[in-house]
């Protein structure tokens, strides 16, 4: 042990970090919990205690349910696509071919592009009259007339998902690649000698190395997706007809546009709770896989 009085000295070293977290995260969180049981306004009033009223009315609200559904749909579809594409791309980049290093370097670009810039870029691409997507698809003969991508409830969320997947599948791919590179070559060779087909090799040789990192990617992306705000704010602000309004957008409207801090807080905590449940699953899975390893 480096420290004679291990704990005390260590805690002293951790103090600054703890102070920051207490002041900027724990205190606000506690405050939000308190707010969620009041009918407080944002600036005007401190509000009265209303019990669980905010939570109860949120549960019966059509708009809240729709926003929750939108968030879940966005999360499910975008994260699934990112994982599938990520694994495929990881496998591809693990092959030997010329230009591989360059391609690996390119993979970082979408991830490094600021989220807001990504949203603006895709909004321009989706523009119904002058967007690149319509023009390209028409010139390629895939569509015979220009489409409105962000103006239809059925396609707006999908368009959003595509923009999000484009930005995030490469990082999942890079994580997979790093995992694949840790698969020992002789194990692979042995499997080939044993006559294992590609699928069997994937399942029994590669998968054990891939599962852990993939789980991390899954959970990190799920949490991010569930919190989604920026890309939607810039691309549609929740339209058309609220079809892309997610929980974060809804909370912003409730707390800041409509100035109802109390019910906004209750909605925000509901989102937090859902993410915590996901996070709990994550931690338990991580611990189990750590025990196995």
């Amino acid at each position: 042990m480096t420290f004679p009085r291990a704990s005390l000295g260590s805690w002293a070293l951790m103090l600054p970090l703890l102070v920051v977290i207490l002041a900027v995260v724990s205190w606000p969180l506690a405050y939000t919990v308190g707010l969620s049981f009041t009918d407080a306004g944002l600036v005007a009033s401190s509000g009265n205690f209303v019990g669980a009223q905010n939570y109860l009315s949120a549960m019966s609200d059509r708009g809240v349910r729709a926003a929750f559904y939108n968030t879940a749909w966005f999360t499910l579809v975008s994260v699934s696509l990112e994982l599938v594409l990520g694994v495929l791309v990881g496998l591809l980049l693990n092959q030997e071919f010329r230009g591989r290093t360059l391609l690996r370097a390119m993979m970082i670009l979408p991830w490094a592009l600021p989220t807001v810039v990504n949203a603006i870029l895709w909004r321009l691409i989706y523009n119904p009259e002058y967007g690149a997507l319509n023009s390209a698809l028409l010139q390629l003969g895939i569509i015979d007339s220009y489409q409105s991508w962000l103006g239809r409830p059925d396609s707006a969320m999908m368009a959003m998902v595509v923009a999000d997947v484009w930005k995030n599948f490469p990082i999942v791919g890079l994580i997979c690649l790093a995992a694949l590179q840790s698969v020992p070559r002789d194990t692979q060779a042995a499997a080939i000698v044993d006559g294992a087909g590609p699928l069997a090799r994937f399942r029994f040789v590669i998968w054990p190395y891939l599962a852990g990192p993939l789980m991390i990617a899954l959970v990190l992306r799920t949490i991010e997706a569930f919190k989604v705000f920026d890309i939607i704010w810039v691309m549609t602000r929740g339209g058309p007809a609220n079809s892309t309004r997610t929980m974060s957008i809804l909370v912003y409207q409730e707390a800041f546009s409509f100035q109802r801090a109390g019910s906004g807080a209750s909605l925000a905590l509901t989102v937090t709770l859902v993410i915590m449940v996901l996070a709990g699953a994550y931690v338990s899975i991580m611990r189990r896989s750590a025990l196995r390893a």
């Binding site: 119904p128 009259e129 002058y130 220009y146 409105s148 962000l150 103006g151 239809r152 549609t236 339209g239 058309p240």
Partner: peptide
Amino acid sequence: NPNSVEYLEEDVRRVFSNGE
């Protein structure tokens, strides 16, 4: 124009000014 449902004023101007 069915795209109207995603248009703000400047989009309207652009379409109109483009002779569409």
